[in-house]
């Protein structure tokens, strides 16, 4: 009885989730609006999607964004995984608290500060701004998120598994690639996905650190949004939301299937044999 959902709990969940999803649902619906007036329904149409694919500037921006996201997520995953290993495994070393501070600070630091400071660094280094500077900027803050995700996976890791490998004659470096990495791999993948989405999503840091020829999709969307709500933007947003939704649902289905399989295996193991 006590564990059953009460009307109050159900109501708060329904209201809460409606609040979270209604705006996105409305945005998706109005991307199929015939009328140019975004808030007046003028019949169903996919014409805005068609126009989208004629808009070369938008497509260019999307391509730049994907390249930046892919590269920065990959580098951030390597650096972030290393950082997580350092945090969990390296014990004490000089400057450890500075190191963990630098990992955690970017998670809560306002983006305007991160963006401004990186831009001023690039200016001081006399570095021409563009694709590479955005990539470096995204790598820097994304690696901190990766570190936190991988770290949580490493904390639950039975260190004796690594010791067992060494005990059986496997040198430390080889142990990392043969034992540790495969076991923490789900965390590394989750870190990469998070880094990728963060980069895809970022407006503020990219605006500061970019230069000519490296306009990202969020910057493009932002500049158009400032001029007003248009069905094309709704269409772009719908595509992005759709991709992310498919990705996240697919990922969770795979995890769920693995879990079900695992539970079945475990039942099998404890059955008669």
């Amino acid at each position: 009885m006590r564990n059953g959902p009460t009307w109050f709990n159900v109501t708060s969940l329904v209201l809460g989730f409606s609040f979270l999803y209604l705006p996105i649902v409305l945005l998706v619906i109005f991307s199929f609006n015939e009328s140019r007036l975004v808030t007046v329904w003028g019949g169903f149409s996919t014409k805005w999607y068609g126009e989208l694919f004629q808009n070369q500037q938008l497509l260019d921006a999307a391509w730049v964004t994907l390249k930046v996201a892919f590269l920065s997520a990959s580098i951030a995953t390597v650096l972030g995984t290393m950082a997580a290993l350092v945090l969990v495994r390296s014990g004490r070393f000089v400057g450890r608290s500075l190191f963990s501070g630098m990992i955690f600070a970017p998670l809560v630091m306002p983006e305007v500060i991160l963006g401004l400071s990186l831009l001023l660094l690039f200016v001081a280094m006399d570095q021409a701004r563009g694709f590479w500077t955005v990539m470096i900027a995204h790598t820097t803050f994304a690696m901190c998120y990766v570190a936190v995700v991988v770290q949580s996976r490493l904390v639950g890791f039975d260190k004796s598994v690594e010791e067992a490998a060494e005990d059986l004659g496997c040198p430390p470096a080889k142990t990392f690639f043969q034992i540790t990495l495969p076991i923490i791999f789900p965390g590394v993948i989750a870190g990469w996905m998070l880094a990728f989405t963060l980069s895809l999503d970022d407006l503020v840091i990219a605006s500061f650190t970019t230069g000519p020829g490296a306009t990202t999709l969020p910057m493009k969307i932002y500049s158009q949004v400032r001029l007003g709500v248009t069905p094309e933007i709704n269409a772009v947003c719908t595509i992005l939301v759709g991709l992310v939704t498919i990705g996240v649902i697919a990922a969770s289905l795979v995890t769920k299937r693995q879990q079900v399989q695992r539970e079945r295996d475990e039942r099998l193991a404890f059955g008669p044999h």
């Binding site: 039975d158 598994v161 067992a164 490998a165 076991i183």
Partner: peptide, 9 residues
């Protein structure tokens, strides 16, 4: 090992 430390993969 006490926890057996079998390689899960």
């Amino acid at each position: 090992f006490q926890s057996y430390a079998l390689f899960p993969h």
